[in-house]
Amino acid sequence: MDIQKQLFLGKTICLGPIDHEKDPAIISGWTHNPEYLRLVDTAPAYPNAAAQVKKKLEAIEKRLEEGKNMYYFHIRDRQDDRLIGFATIRWIEWTHGSGWIHLGIGDPQDWRKGIGSEVLDLLLQYTFNELNLYRLTAMIPEYNPGARRLFEKAGFIEEVRRRQALNRDGQRWDLLLYGLLREEWEAQHAQ
């Protein structure tokens, strides 16, 4: 064990707390891009004003404070502290050691640059070495091949295929659940 190891520092990004002053306007901007909304969530795409985002972030931090079953981070650029996305481990069942992982990178200019992998590395380390969970589940729409590649590269295995669970522009898609077990993650990091 290396107690000096920093859990929230990646190579180019870091995980940090919510900035209630600056973040809402940036996230509001992301929610005006339906492509982002459809990739990151299955709910109907719907824009949020900065004031709405502010309320939601306050509610999230209230839940963190109550110490229920979620952990939530904002992804920032290590160079200039710019907000890049969010990452959360949620719906934790402590007695079973299971949780769900969800992350989003808001600005399309930040996509396909390896940021997701860097974030996922940090989150998995946090999940297995800090929260001491046994397994994680990720929910991914079939039409998001970028997310599928990201999680497959990190060792996640497709476990469930909810057939035709999504309808986008009249076309039916499956909703996929990916799973990763502690022993699978440890085996990757054994060398």
Binding site: T95, H96, G97, S98, Y134, R135, T137, I157, E158, E159, V160, R161, R162, R163, L177, G179, L181
Partner: peptide, 12 residues
Amino acid sequence: FQLEGIQRKAML
């Protein structure tokens, strides 16, 4: 109902 998958070892 049809089988759509298995969440491995998800309970203790």
